[in-house]
């Protein structure tokens, strides 16, 4: 795509994003904020899974870490939510580093299993330590801003999402991003060229977990209620399905996937519990017939048109 057109498109999207609250009702504003959360989650998971080929099942767990740390800090130490979010992010980064050091050397299936175990252990702890975490009842936490305003919350979430996306984009385009892809393509060859495979993978894991921690903390303070649902495999499934359906290993894929799924789920809400099933079936169909996701289909179409 010509550069000019890309820029125009970006400008239009930014404008649409900025004007959205002024014509969207309260309900759609809420949907928009949730969508921003999923964009952050799926994009950061994609940085790990799509660019370095490591499927982590702890991404939702790291969002939970961010949310609970920030929420508990706000309740017990009266830390302002925005500072709390930074703290939550830092703790997620630290845990990500610890877990990464433990399991990244083995990679592949082992990484998936270890992250799954970590995620479930965390959930069990939060369920059981209800005196501290309120268990499945959920933890009531202060709103993200001193004054309740959905519009301001939307702009805050939007700004953070844009910042996160910018960081991801610059990483993908940097030498580190090239190293990510080299490691995903062929780690033996990458190592033979002087790439420290374990460090590169660890970097991806920690960066991705940190972003999840930030997204989770903001999400928790927006909802004002944090439940163990945030680190459930269900949320993990949504994040994964968004990235898969949008197109893993592409920058735009998770964004498209999040918007697609969030708005689709609004339209099929009348079918209630059907919607997870439907997402699942769509994701399966995409895996089977279009492994590159919607972005892959789009690119193929563009190529067909131009030739």
């Amino acid at each position: 795509m010509p550069r000019r057109r890309t820029q125009t498109l970006q400008l239009l999207m930014a404008l649409g994003l900025a004007l959205f609250p002024f014509f969207a009702g309260d309900y759609w504003l809420h949907t928009g904020i949730i969508c921003l959360f999923y964009i952050m989650m799926a994009s950061s998971w994609n940085l790990l899974a799509g660019y370095t080929g490591q499927v982590s099942f702890a991404h939702a767990a790291f969002a939970g870490v961010g949310a609970y740390v920030s929420g508990l800090a706000a309740i017990h130490f009266h830390l302002p939510p925005l500072l709390g979010a930074l703290l939550g992010m830092a703790v997620a980064a630290f845990l990500g580093l610890l877990l990464g050091v433990l399991c990244i050397r083995m990679g592949g299936i082992y990484l998936s299993l270890t992250t799954l175990a970590f995620s479930e252990m965390l959930r069990i702890i939060i369920d059981n330590e209800y005196e501290f975490t309120r268990g499945t009842m959920g933890l009531s936490v202060p709103f993200i801003l001193p004054v309740y305003s959905k519009t301001t919350a939307y702009f805050l979430m939007g700004a953070v999402t844009v910042a996160v996306l910018c960081v991801i984009r610059s990483i993908v385009r940097s030498d580190l991003g090239t190293a990510f892809r080299a490691v995903q393509n062929d780690e033996t060859a990458a190592a033979s060229l002087g790439i420290h495979v374990v460090k590169v993978r660890l970097a991806a894991f920690v960066i991705s977990s940190t972003m999840a921690g930030l997204a989770g903390a903001l999400y928790g303070h927006y909802h004002q209620l944090i439940t163990p649902e945030i680190l459930s495999l269900n949320l993990m499934f949504f994040v994964l399905a968004i990235a898969v359906i949008g197109g893993m290993g592409t920058f735009v894929g998770p964004i498209v996937g999040a918007i697609f799924l969030e708005f689709l789920s609004e339209y099929i809400r009348i079918y209630g519990q059907f919607h997870v099933l439907l997402f699942g079936l769509i994701a399966l169909a995409v895996c089977r017939f279009a492994p590159q996701g919607l972005m892959g289909l789009w690119q193929r179409r563009m190529r067909a048109l131009s030739s």
């Binding site: 899974a49 099942f57 495999l233 994964l240 519990q273 997870v276 699942g280 079936l281 895996c287 089977r288």
Partner: peptide
């Protein structure tokens, strides 16, 4: 139908069977 295409790509089969598990859970619920 689902696994055969993914041979040699551990990540793909991991993702597919995970998605399948969520699909089945929700189908059972229904």
């Amino acid at each position: 139908t689902l696994i055969r295409n993914t041979y040699g790509n551990d990540m793909a089969s991991l993702i597919i069977t995970f998605v399948l598990s969520i699909v089945l859970q929700n189908a059972y619920l229904l």
